[in-house]
Structure formats: C-alpha cells, structure tokens
Simulated scan of single mutants.
Amino acid sequence: MATENLHFSPLYIQNAPTGNDDGEKTVWVVMRSRKEKVSVTQQSCGTTAAKAERLYGYELAQRMVRRFFMPMKESVTVKCGRQVRKISPAIPDIFFVNDTISHIDSIVRRNIGIEYLYVKGQPYRQPVIIRDAEMDNFIAATTTEQRMTFHAAGDDNLSRIIGRRVRIPHNDSRIEGELLTVRGSRYRRLRVRLQNCLVAYIDLTLPPTAIIETLD
C-alpha cells in the first residue's frame, strides 16, 4: 500500500441556533476530542427504530453547536490495486466550536468524548477562547481551493522564518497573514496563525494585478 496523494482542507459547518440563549454571547472555544469512539443510539431516518453507532466526540459535537471548524486531511492510497480515499483530522485531537459557554458546558457534561483545551499556566481552568475576528480571518483564509497544510503550533518547522505581515484579496474580502519566501518553493506562501494552537500555510496563486498591502 502506497500513499498517492495528500490534500488538506477544513471542515466548516454552520447549524441553526440551538435554542434560547437568554442574550448570552457566543464565543469560539478550542476543544479536544478523545481518541476513543463512544457508543450512541440514534433514531434511523424515516423510521422509529433505534440504531447503535460508535462515533468520535467531534463527530457528535459538530451536530450540536452553531458553528464547527476542524482541519481535515484527505489521503488517497492504493490497496490491492484499488484507490482508497480516506478523510481524517489533520490535527488528531483539536477542533473549534462557536456557541454560548453555557450550551458548550452542557455538551461537555454529556460525556461524549470531548473536553475543553485550557490555557496553560493558569491557577484555575480557563478555556482557550479565540477572538471572533481572528477566527473569521482563519476560516476565510483556509476555505479556498489553493493548496495548504495545517500544523499544530508546537510542530511548525517553519516557525523561525520571519514573514512580512500583509493583507491580501480573497474572494469578496481580504485576509491577513505573514507572507513567506521559502527556498526551493515556486509559490509564495501565506502563514496564518490561530493563537498558540494551530498554523496554516497556504500556497498563493495571485493574479498580477492583486494588491498586497503591507501591515505594520
């Protein structure tokens, strides 16, 4: 069996509001999914029969929150002469949810195999919260057809390369990141960070007329 291709892309889901939030603000929170699957019983579509399934915590959580984001990777391998396509998390245990803290708390208490990622070095447990503008920029930058890779912040082997902070056109908006020049690469590469937990590298293919704005 040999790997033929590896492609990275995000899983981004928007669901309807989960109910009455009593005016509580929604926030982006970093979560962890345990490696073990959990058993759940769900009603089969169109019938009253119940069906037992074993799913990962992130697979359940993505149905329960307003917005869900998780970096994914797609690999195509050859097995017994046939191509086999597999989609799995790019960073095995990290994903992001957007909802009210009280609703997220209620999901965690269900013991479906997910938990908060907490800020290190704090005397009490404080979940890692991402600013809306930072998360929206990261989602906009990575929901693209251009080639990209995801890395956990601690596994970023290009972290020592200093990039130029820029704002570039993207679809109908503009995104911010660090523009890098990597020796041996024919692409200009944009690095977009998400606090101290996730980094995306996007190989840019911009039209000659694109305006790249340098930021201070």
Results as ranks from 00 to 15, higher is better:
148 M>Y: 02
125 R>M: 03
85 R>H: 09
40 V>E: 11
86 K>H: 13
145 E>R: 13
138 F>C: 02
78 V>G: 02
116 Y>H: 09
85 R>W: 07
73 K>D: 04
110 R>K: 15
160 R>P: 12
99 D>S: 00
148 M>D: 00
57 G>F: 06
99 D>N: 01
161 I>Y: 13
33 S>M: 05
119 V>D: 10
76 V>P: 00
69 F>W: 01
38 V>R: 12
100 T>H: 14
115 E>M: 07
123 P>T: 04
61 A>Y: 04
55 L>M: 05
73 K>A: 14
156 D>C: 08
60 L>N: 11
76 V>R: 13
47 T>R: 06
80 C>D: 08
141 A>F: 05
31 M>D: 03
59 E>V: 02
34 R>K: 12
120 K>F: 08
60 L>E: 07
86 K>L: 12
145 E>P: 03
87 I>C: 06
52 A>H: 08
79 K>S: 04
139 I>W: 07
68 F>Y: 14
31 M>A: 06
87 I>A: 06
108 V>R: 02
87 I>W: 07
121 G>L: 01
92 P>C: 08
38 V>A: 10
152 A>E: 10
130 I>E: 04
94 I>V: 15
106 S>G: 04
39 S>D: 15
149 T>H: 12
102 S>Y: 11
35 K>T: 09
39 S>P: 06
87 I>V: 12
49 A>G: 05
127 P>M: 03
110 R>M: 14
36 E>G: 05
81 G>N: 02
142 T>Q: 08
155 D>G: 05
84 V>Y: 10
124 Y>Q: 10
58 Y>F: 10
82 R>P: 00
39 S>L: 15
21 D>N: 12
145 E>A: 13
51 K>A: 06
76 V>D: 07
137 N>D: 01
91 I>P: 03
56 Y>V: 00
36 E>Q: 14
35 K>C: 01
103 H>L: 12
36 E>L: 12
83 Q>E: 06
49 A>I: 14
153 A>M: 12
84 V>T: 06
131 R>D: 00
138 F>E: 03
57 G>C: 02
153 A>E: 11
127 P>H: 01
145 E>Q: 13
78 V>L: 10
46 G>M: 03
111 N>F: 15
62 Q>R: 14
104 I>L: 10
97 V>W: 06
36 E>H: 14
